[in-house]
Nucleic acid binder design. Structure first.
Lengths: 247, 247
DNA sequence: TCATTTTGTCTATTGATATAGACAACTATA
DNA sequence: TATAGTTGTCTATATCAATAGACAAAATGA
């Protein structure tokens, strides 16, 4: 939306075809290449980016592989539709409710759970002593079969013993907390950043190398301000945008 | 903080040295490589990442160039301190106030301004008809001489005629709006995403290719709910994290 | 001082990237 | 049915990225 940026950096450590693929993705996101329409011909793109046609072809091949484009010999290359879901973050941030209306099917899978000593960051978030036992739940959120989040949540092991089993059974943080008498909880703080997906993200979220994840670090508290959950969540930026609401 | 991820993707279009540089940056951010301490020796890093020592050296050379590391022959390679600033986003989001206490000097530079017809997105945000004249201000925020944001702000051209001159003079959105009788304004909505910096971002924010930017799209309104500003801001993820507060 | 550890520089080789040109295969349309 | 426009495939060449090995230069500690 700001300045258009059809320039390419050579010997930057990022191959030209990868940079061009990213630019095409950006152009699609911004609406310069509308969905379901044909891309400019390869020759034209090569001219626009100042590279050889074969280099453009490499970029297109990667995006075809990623499911963003479809190439048809003799006809052209077309933009497939890929809407980003909008995930609301506010005082009452709940996974399933948040995506209601945007995806017909949505659920959380418990990937792993463990008991571990709290590191400094987790301990501060939960108001515990560093080294105190905490339960860690690793979860993945999916919407219509597509992974849209990967989260680690930490809970005081003394107060929430067995929350891992509850989570496995109910598939819901909210329902699991209810078993411990938590009928309501609020989001106290959220810190947001972004970075490249690491190898674990790539695998769990089914992303391609170079993908970007949004990272939120949050603390949930009871209505009277007692911290109950510290969490770090990652959202693939190509599938999710975060909509901040009253919190 | 979740799974550690010291694996590297070959023929991904991103050179191994660039991937390793990014991993080192990540390790520094996460605290695995503490500030002001020595990195593991090149040989050890090569072993950890499963590459040749020379490839690690390329990564280190890039980070030395970026000012993240300092290599000293015979002694080792050291992590320079580079803290990420925390930019608060809430009901009253103001650039200069937000970074108070984190940077001694901070200001906004007006890069460009123009009058243009509102596209659909801007018009919807401001509650105007598509094609209505709007003033666009392109600004860059700096803290202690380091670029930390790049933003485009749109204003109704009829109501805020001359805001570009006010902005150039005062260097503050808040002060400029005050000249039009706006003593207070609130943030109505914020939508957040992340992507790779494009060439314009790289230039204006002094980033290296492959850098990530956080993108916020926001609407500011008067206390009685009248939209006055539509904006799109980008923050380099390596320098800024967004701290969401009550809004 | 001397051995060890670490970064710096050099040569050589292999594989991935990028350019260049030519032509085949397919589609749409005049 | 031609013709023009588009994607697909092939060969060839040059440059960048990555590996491999050897040794120099500087700092550290016994």
């Amino acid at each position: 939306m700001i300045g258009q940026a059809n320039s390419i950096e050579r010997r930057s450590g990022v191959a030209l075809w990868r940079q061009i693929a990213d630019q095409i993705l950006h152009s699609i996101a911004v609406g310069d290449f509308p969905e379901n329409a044909a891309l400019p011909p390869e020759i034209a793109l090569a001219g626009r980016y100042g590279v050889n046609r074969h280099t453009v072809r490499s970029a297109i091949a990667a995006l075809v592989q990623e499911g963003v484009l479809r190439a048809e010999q003799g006809r052209g290359t077309f933009v497939l539709s890929r809407k980003r879901l909008s995930y609301p973050i506010g005082a009452r941030t709940r996974f399933s409710e948040g995506l209601q209306g945007q995806a017909s099917e949505r659920h959380i899978t418990l990937l792993a759970s463990s008991i571990e000593p709290a590191n400094r960051r987790v301990a501060e978030g939960l108001g515990l002593a560093t080294g105190a036992d905490v339960i860690r739940l690793e979860t993945r959120g999916e919407a219509d079969g597509m992974p849209v989040s990967r989260a680690a949540g930490w809970f005081d092991a003394r107060r929430f013993a067995g929350i891992d089993a509850a989570m496995a059974e109910t598939g819901s943080i909210t329902a699991s907390l209810a078993r411990f008498g938590i009928d309501d909880y609020l989001r106290q703080s959220t810190v947001l950043s972004a970075r490249h997906a690491d190898a674990a993200d790539l695998a769990d979220l089914e992303l391609q190398p170079g993908a970007i994840v949004l990272v939120t670090v949050a603390v949930n508290v009871t209505p009277d301000g007692q911290p109950i959950q510290f969490s770090e969540s990652r959202f693939p930026a190509e599938r999710i945008e975060l909509k901040l609401s009253a919190l």
